[in-house]
Computed example of a mutant assay.
Amino acid sequence: MNTLLSASGLGARLAAVICVCLSVLLTTLALRRAAVSYQNAFVLRATASLRQNFVVADAGRLFLSSLLLTALLGSTGYGLMGVMGALLGTVFAVVAPRLAVAYFARRRTRTFVYQLPDALLALSSALRAGSNLTKGLELLSTRQPAPLAQEFTIVLAEYRIGRPLAQSLSEMRGRIDSPELDLMNTAINVSRRVGGNLADTLEALARTLQEKAHMEGKIDALTSMGRAQGWVVGMLPIFIGFVLYQQQPERMSLLFTQWYGWIVLAVIAVMMAIAAWMIRKIVNIDV
């Protein structure tokens, strides 16, 4: 009887060990599959973004750099603030590459918009000199600086392989998120369909865009103090919290280890996000 009980107990333990091993194996396979899927999605998205912004970089190395940054910030946050710090550092490291790509895209778009009035004036002069629209766009692609020259080079390459010019200009509008391109595309498409003096239209559009850029520059200069104050107000609670944590680590650690501390942090984060949104709405004036 004792032998049967021992055998049954041994079998139960063996079954439990097998179940645990299978669970660990399945979990490992699932995590590996999820990691591979995330890596593939990251590489594809990063490759598309880099190509669109004409940045020569290896997406695989960027993924490895992102992993190293995640490990570094996560460990640093854990050493400074515990589990909550590790979580914050990991989230920031995951979001940082996307924020960097978005920043470079916005900067490239802003540079393109500032270059567009001079390019339209050059195109208008070329049309008045007797060149056709295709020859004028070719001059823009060879004599204008990047990124404007890069975008018009793509437009001409697509036009030469048989794609309609209107479609190529529309796709350039999709790559460059700028309403100024809508005006240029509309002027060119209307002129190609119903005729008219395209040179005068482009010159008037260029003058309008120059005035708009001049006004936006004045607004940026006048609202720069408000943006600086927004950054100071946004960083001040984080700085004060860090100083208090260094002075009273036991009391401040309750914010990261107790449920009511997490609620306080969530309320603070929501209020700071609302404040940042309101400041952004105040200082961003659409012309």
Results as ranks from 00 to 15, higher is better:
259 W>F: 12
211 E>Y: 07
40 N>S: 12
68 L>P: 00
72 L>C: 11
124 S>C: 07
238 I>K: 01
140 L>G: 00
174 G>A: 09
52 Q>R: 15
148 L>K: 01
105 A>V: 14
76 T>S: 13
120 L>H: 10
234 G>L: 12
75 S>P: 00
172 M>Q: 03
286 D>H: 15
36 V>M: 11
229 Q>T: 09
137 L>A: 14
226 G>C: 01
206 A>M: 01
18 I>P: 00
112 F>L: 07
69 L>E: 06
223 T>K: 06
6 S>Y: 11
154 I>L: 03
204 A>V: 15
175 R>S: 09
170 S>C: 08
47 T>I: 04
95 V>N: 05
90 T>S: 14
60 G>S: 15
76 T>Q: 07
90 T>V: 15
146 A>L: 09
257 T>P: 02
191 S>M: 05
269 A>P: 03
93 A>F: 04
277 W>C: 07
102 A>C: 07
204 A>L: 13
243 V>W: 01
215 M>A: 10
182 D>I: 08
228 A>V: 14
248 Q>H: 08
205 L>G: 02
35 A>W: 12
32 R>P: 03
174 G>W: 13
199 A>D: 07
256 F>A: 11
35 A>L: 11
116 L>V: 01
49 S>E: 10
137 L>G: 14
86 A>N: 05
15 A>Y: 06
79 G>H: 09
258 Q>R: 15
165 L>T: 02
235 M>K: 05
279 I>Q: 02
268 I>F: 12
111 T>C: 15
262 W>Y: 11
286 D>Q: 12
157 A>Q: 13
171 E>L: 15
200 D>V: 14
217 G>F: 05
254 L>S: 09
171 E>V: 11
177 D>E: 13
88 L>E: 00
9 G>V: 05
117 P>H: 06
86 A>M: 15
79 G>S: 08
265 L>R: 04
154 I>N: 02
199 A>W: 09
8 S>Y: 10
228 A>G: 11
55 V>Y: 11
229 Q>D: 04
260 Y>D: 10
203 E>C: 06
73 L>Y: 04
51 R>W: 13
158 E>K: 01
